[in-house]
């Protein structure tokens, strides 16, 4: 029983990291109808910059630089996608795959076979509460995710900017007629989306993982089931999907001995299995808007 609760706690904290990435996917998709496959390499870029700079300027300053790099990377991607004026969404998403290959290859070459620690203040500390053991880094991840995602939703719901973002996502043409600058709002979607990914990347490489590795970017792909489960165009669903994926993955990995028939490393593929099952049941995810098409 104790083990179950502990696994649940770790699962929720891992899920909150996935939720950050997934909300990033959803914000970009809702804002511009493009799936940003380069999310993984942007995440790696941010984490890499933090790892390189933190011995020189300290962790917090490096964190600032890393987040800025991720956000600017997002803007640059938006600029790249903007070059294609009348491309359909699939073409644009393929474009981000190309950008991802470029960036991920270059970063993987720079990182090489090293494992670069980010020098975060949580290091390998663990929190023991009522018999539960949870790493500090994960607690920090959970709290930051709550704070950041909560803040983001408040901004979307309550501020004038949030209203313009939502209306631009709902109907770009009407929004333009109402004087909303599409380019600015869309650029902001990419900026926010990739900053979220970078933040998540930072927690993803922290304890119990050891640091930035060449294939860290692949971890961002685990957030894809999360965002699909929640529905691609629903940031709220992405949070739920992220938590579901995190918990499912941790449970399957944690009970690996009992679930031996699933094979080694079953935890890593649980998110994808969950995603396909949900898709069979609801093709647009749990909260995704359905396309009402009748012929």
């Amino acid at each position: 029983m104790n083990r179950l609760i502990e696994l649940l706690a770790i699962g929720v904290s891992l899920g909150s990291i996935y939720a950050l990435i997934a909300v990033g996917f959803a914000v970009i998709f809702k804002g511009t109808r493009v799936v940003n496959f380069a999310q993984g390499s942007i995440l790696l870029l941010g984490a890499y910059i933090v790892a390189v700079l933190s011995p020189h300027v300290g962790f917090w300053a490096a964190l600032g630089f890393g987040l800025a790099a991720g956000a600017l990377g997002g803007l640059a991607l938006y600029g790249l996608v903007g070059l294609v004026r009348h491309g359909d969404h699939m073409t644009l998403s393929i474009l981000t795959i190309g950008a991802d290959v470029l960036l991920a290859t270059e970063l993987a070459r720079r990182v090489g076979s090293r494992v670069m620690p980010t020098g975060d203040p949580w290091s390998d500390g663990v929190l023991r509460v009522a018999g539960l053991t949870v790493p500090h880094a994960r607690v920090a991840a959970l709290l930051s995710a709550l704070l950041v995602i909560g803040l983001l939703f408040v901004v979307f719901q309550r501020t004038a900017w949030g209203v313009s973002w939502r209306s631009a996502a709902a109907d770009p043409e009407v929004a333009t007629l109402m004087g909303i600058r599409l380019r600015r709002v869309r650029g902001a979607s990419w900026l926010i989306g990739d900053a979220l990914a970078t933040l998540a990347g930072l927690f993803l490489v922290a304890f119990p993982n050891t640091g930035v590795e060449a294939h860290t970017g692949l971890l961002a792909l685990r957030a894809i089931p999360a965002v699909i489960i929640g529905g691609l165009d629903s940031p709220e669903g992405a949070v739920l999907g992220g938590l579901a994926v995190g918990v499912a993955e941790t449970l399957v990995a944690g009970y690996g001995d009992e679930l031996g028939f699933l094979g080694q490393g079953a935890g890593d593929v649980t998110p994808y299995l969950l995603m396909i099952l949900v898709l069979l049941w609801r093709p647009s995810g749990l909260f995704g808007s359905r396309e009402a098409v009748r012929v």
Partner: peptide
């Protein structure tokens, strides 16, 4: 899955098959 999803959704969902497949292969 493939018949109900279109375009992008399918692309993202089909990603899962690669990982599941590799898991089975291992």
């Amino acid at each position: 899955v493939a018949g109900r999803l279109h375009g992008l959704y399918l692309g993202v969902a089909s990603l899962g098959l690669v990982f599941l497949g590799q898991h089975v292969l291992f």
